[in-house]
């Protein structure tokens, strides 16, 4: 399990980071002579190159969004859990509102009212992505805030900020990391979905989801445009899910 997970994830990261450097962007240039030929996509770009660059776009967006969502979520959730009382109730009622929108619906709505572009895509995904982290962080804070070392620190006159930063946060990272690796996989999926729907990356940007969209249009004449990006997305999603499973098992062996 461990070997498989680490291999898959490192291959993905290697492809995303080094792949574009290794093969160069020549295959992304349009070459009308190859339009929709086997191995080539619309306007004759090279599908392999596109997939490699797509890995970079996909992982980059997923990682950036995870970092932002995680930071926002942890701060929000930790404050809510630590302060408690009315503040907690108000903050959590707001989270309830965001949870009223199923799946990527809210991200889709935000992407629709912003212009298509990578930055706006990140905004749309982060706007909804932090909620899960906030909930986990809050429950973790609730679990540790009444433990002896915290009350001791408080008795010694440590400030709230210091307690949160030095005593509580270091002790709640575990579950958040597990959550984050699942989060990367769901962000890969969300980015691909939005790009597939034409609400993600701008036209011409290499993205797995956007390639699948082409594949559906040219289903009869170029089915390879569906198969390969689909396999890439499935493998990437699966890898980070495995990573999450493995991290959870490591932390909490049954």
């Amino acid at each position: 399990m461990k070997a498989l997970v680490l291999t898959l994830v490192s291959i993905l990261i290697a492809v995303a980071v080094l792949g574009p450097l290794a093969i160069g962007p020549a295959g992304l240039e349009l070459n009308l002579a190859h339009d929709l030929q086997s191995g080539y996509g619309e306007n004759g770009f090279d599908v392999f190159t596109w997939l490699v660059y797509g890995a970079r776009v996909s992982l980059m967006i997923a990682c950036i969004c995870t970092v932002i969502s995680l930071s926002v979520g942890v701060i929000y959730g930790a404050i809510s859990g630590y302060v408690g009382g009315l503040v907690d109730i108000i903050l959590m009622r707001f989270v309830d509102i965001l949870l009223a929108f199923p799946g990527i619906l809210l991200a889709l709505y935000i992407a629709a009212i912003l212009k298509p572009g990578i930055l706006n895509l990140v905004v749309a995904l982060c706007a909804t992505g932090w909620v899960g982290y906030a909930r986990v962080a809050r429950s973790q804070v609730l679990a540790v805030k009444n433990q002896d070392y915290v009350t001791a620190a408080l008795a010694l006159g440590a400030s709230h900020a210091r307690i949160l930063g030095r005593h509580i946060l270091p002790n709640i990272w575990g579950p958040l990391f597990v959550q984050a690796s699942f989060g990367v996989s769901s962000l890969i999926l969300a980015e691909a979905s939005l790009s597939f729907l034409g609400l993600g990356v701008p036209p011409g940007t290499p993205s797995w989801g956007a390639l699948l969209d082409q594949g559906v249009t040219y289903l009869f004449v170029a089915p390879h445009l569906v198969i390969w990006p689909g396999v890439c997305i499935a493998v990437a999603v699966l890898s980070f899910n495995f990573l999450g499973d493995w991290l959870r098992d490591v932390r909490d062996p049954v």
Binding site: A192, L219, V226, G230, I233, A234, V237, L238, N241
Partner: peptide, 11 residues
Amino acid sequence: ISLPKFFLAPM
């Protein structure tokens, strides 16, 4: 669990 709907459907 791992196949996205927009891959499964065209397949």
